[in-house]
């Protein structure tokens, strides 16, 4: 049982790490803001779930697990919210995915 939990948790952590990396790569390589945001969301949602569940399996039933669950809950609440708000802000300001990219001039003034 112990070993099974260990293997499972390592597996989750590794996959979580891979997802984080893929998300980061996507945020860098994707062509425009919305696709980048899409890639970044991977690191904000699936990766924390995997990583935190992985750690929770390690720590067992303890105060730490409760805290981990709380952090996970907050991340899952705030991450997508922030993405949504950012996307709508970009959209409202007239930033188009395929049109002429909103330049720093427009935004920075």
């Amino acid at each position: 049982m112990e070993t099974l939990l260990d293997i499972l948790s390592w597996l989750l952590l590794t996959i979580g790490g891979i997802f984080v990396f893929i998300g980061g790569l996507g945020a860098l390589r994707m062509p425009d803001l919305y696709t980048r945001m899409h890639a970044a969301s991977v690191t904000d949602s699936i990766a924390p779930i995997l990583i935190f569940v992985g750690i929770m399996l390690q720590s067992g039933l303890s105060l730490a697990s409760v805290k981990l669950a709380a952090i996970l809950l907050f991340l899952l609440l705030t991450g997508p919210t922030a993405s949504n708000a950012l996307a709508s802000a970009a959209l409202l300001s007239g930033y188009k995915a395929d049109g002429p990219a909103a330049s720093e001039e427009d935004a920075g003034k």
Binding site: F74, L77, T78, T81, A82, N84, A85, S88, A89, L92
Partner: peptide
């Protein structure tokens, strides 16, 4: 005001 979702989530978070 435009941002309905942030407002809801934010309001929920404040007490925490």
């Amino acid at each position: 005001r435009h941002y309905l979702i942030p407002r809801l989530v934010g309001r929920m978070l404040i007490p925490f």
